[in-house]
Design a protein around this nucleic acid. Structure first.
Length: 600
DNA sequence: AGCACGCCGACT
DNA sequence: GTCGGCGTGCTC
């Protein structure tokens, strides 16, 4: 009797359920009729506790199939991941403390993949000379080399295409990942001219049907150029030889919800496992990437155009937000019919107000909010009244919100000359989120660089430099085009780096500081945010982390309880956190795990 | 995620 | 003595 059951095909299937409990998957008998259609990466339907669910095949073997339930059917005609991609997905599940099924679902297209045959890659246009020829040649011939970083000021589309051209010409595939859909479209626009029909767009805002079609062609057609936002970083691509990541330090490169997957980290992992090459392009690499080791390639000249620094300590007392020098430059731009962008890092009118007499910060007496301008609290609607500390009735704004900067500029330049981002006025006032849509300008002004550099965040300097370099990069080339950065600390290392047009010495120095303090990339941080945690949460967390890291918290923030776990190496902690997170979720709590957080 | 199982109160 | 409420726990 035993003989009849030996050496039968068995598949290991991870059910598509967002729980750690099914991470190892379950064994199912594979009926003869399905044997030809199932591979590692296939999606199947399997019986599980009295119903049928989707599952992903993560392994195949032969053995005794007695007592096993049977795979019901195969969904779609193509496996959605390869064994090598599965290796990276498993690593992600551990690193980001997430159930494996959640990662497997991310690699799959939105609709079922149908069709199994690839078309040959269409012909392509002329291939221009690339900026990193050695990397392009190695990728074209399938040789694995270490990751490169191209320090370049803009023109990502042309540069990416030039680097990918020889790869496509050799019949292998390339991928470009951009931080926003708008930037991916710009790259695609430039790439389309040469790559033609080989260009495949992967934008999460596109309909599922189109995304699945692009996913399918990428999966089947070597010689494709995949361009998209962070989601494409997990796509299986036939003949993938080179991945280009534009501006890996930007927010858009990291998923906001759990699992907080970062494009840089998954793609580095994939490159090592799948043996493809990596090219990062940008003005200011992250300290994480420098610490991981990249070969930095510079183009001749500065990484961004010249920057003028205005020392605000030289201002006469009671002068406004905008220095005379910046005002004169803005006047000139308006007079000549050009455009300018004035950057400030806060929305609203001002981040806070203080009493004109005793300098106490103004707060709503009813709810404690820090109000904006006016006498009504924006949060609770109550009346704010005079200063709670001294009774005086005059308040002065602190810092430079978009509203306040706009108002001040309108007084000087004229009402219709100044507007907020997207208004079409010649002088645009905006924040980081307006930067993507800023057209090339003659003049860029940073109103308050100090507000950026003094942010209470260990990454403030690095991010400030990245942001200011981006701002400076919106200025078109040519004589009379300029950037003005206002600061009260012109000797700050970030301002010095900005002036020099070279981020690397500053980043090296920053790396040493981080090492001394044990901050990333020298150490690791995981943030646990829990809504309605059970009372034993803190004790269990400390037990799970043990001696391998420090636990800070709990702290209450916006209705959530927050812990911070910091350590030089949190490998063991990640594994210990899995059952804890499961326990918290089982007891009804909403758990958000932020691995490698960006804002701390 | 669901579906079984179990342990309680309300009803024929 | 049975039906059904929904709080735990397991799923090849």
């Amino acid at each position: 009797v035993a003989n009849r059951h030996e050496n039968k095909p068995i598949v290991q299937v991870v059910p598509d359920l967002p729980t750690f409990a099914v991470d190892d998957g379950f064994a199912y008998r594979l009926p003869e009729s399905l044997a030809r259609d199932v591979q590692v990466g296939s999606m199947v339907r399997v019986p599980l506790s009295g119903r049928r669910v989707r599952g992903y095949v993560v392994g195949m073997r032969h053995g005794d199939d007695r007592g096993l339930k049977e795979v019901v059917s195969v969904s779609g005609e193509l496996p959605v991941f390869t064994p090598r991609l599965l290796e990276t997905l498993r690593w992600c599940a551990v690193h980001y403390v997430a159930p494996l099924a959640v990662l497997l679902r991310r690699a799959a297209p939105a609709s079922l993949p149908r069709g199994t045959r690839g078309e040959p890659a269409p012909p392509m246009g002329e291939v221009p000379a690339g900026p990193v020829p050695r990397l392009s040649e190695a990728s074209a011939s399938g040789r694995h080399v270490r990751p490169h970083y191209l320090l370049a000021s803009g023109k990502w589309g042309e540069r990416a295409l030039a680097a990918a051209g020889p790869v496509l010409a050799a019949g292998r595939s390339a991928m470009v990942v951009a931080p926003t859909a708008a930037e991916a479209e710009v790259v695609a626009g430039a790439a389309g001219k040469v790559a033609g029909e080989r260009l495949l767009l992967g934008l999460s805002e596109h309909p599922d049907r189109e995304q699945t079609a692009a996913w399918m062609r990428a999966r089947l057609t070597p010689g494709s150029l995949v361009v998209g936002t962070r989601g494409v970083a997990l796509w299986p691509v036939a003949g993938l030889a080179l991945v280009i990541v534009v501006d890996e330090g930007r927010r858009g490169m990291k998923e906001r919800q759990t699992p907080t997957v970062h494009v840089r980290e998954v793609i580095r992992r994939r490159a090592a496992v799948e043996r493809f090459n990596l090219l990062f392009v940008g003005r200011v690499p992250t300290t994480e990437l420098l610490a991981a080791g990249v070969e930095v390639v510079r183009l001749p000249g500065r990484t961004w155009p010249l920057v003028e620094v205005v020392d605000r300590r030289d201002d006469p007392p009671r002068s406004g937000l905008i220095s005379d020098r910046a005002l004169m430059a803005l006047h000139l731009v308006v007079k000549e019919g050009g455009r300018a962008f004035v950057f400030t890092h806060r929305r609203g009118y001002a981040p806070a107000f203080r009493c004109g007499a005793c300098r106490t910060l103004r707060r709503c007496p009813a709810c404690g909010a820090r109000p904006e301008r006016g006498d009504a609290c924006p949060r609770c609607g109550g009346t704010l009244g005079p200063c709670a500390a001294c009774g005086a009735g005059r308040f002065e704004p602190l810092g430079a919100g978009v509203g306040r900067v706009t108002e001040e500029l309108r007084r000087v330049l004229g009402r219709d000359r100044v507007g907020e981002g997207g208004s079409g006025a010649p002088v645009l006032v905006g924040t980081e989120r307006d930067l993507v849509a800023v057209p090339p300008v003659r003049l860029a002004v940073a109103v308050d660089a100090d507000g950026l550099l003094l942010a209470p965040n260990y990454r403030a300097g690095e991010e400030g430099l990245r942001l200011l370099a981006r701002l400076v990069g919106t200025v078109e080339q040519g004589s009379g085009r300029r950037s003005i950065v206002q600061t009260a600390q012109p000797e700050h290392p970030v301002i010095v780096a900005l002036r020099r047009g070279d981020p690397l010495p500053y980043l090296q120095e920053e790396l040493e500081n981080r090492s001394a303090l044990g901050f990333p990339p020298a150490g690791e941080i995981i943030v646990l945010e829990v809504r309605e945690p059970p009372s034993d949460a803190d004790a269990r967390l400390r037990e799970a982390v043990g001696e391998s890291g420090a636990v800070l918290g709990p702290a209450e923030r916006r209705g959530r309880t927050r812990w911070l776990i910091q350590g030089s190496s949190l490998g063991g902690t990640r594994v210990a956190l899995r059952p804890l997170v499961q326990h918290l979720r089982d007891s009804g709590a909403r758990v958000h795990v932020d691995v490698d957080p960006l804002d701390l």
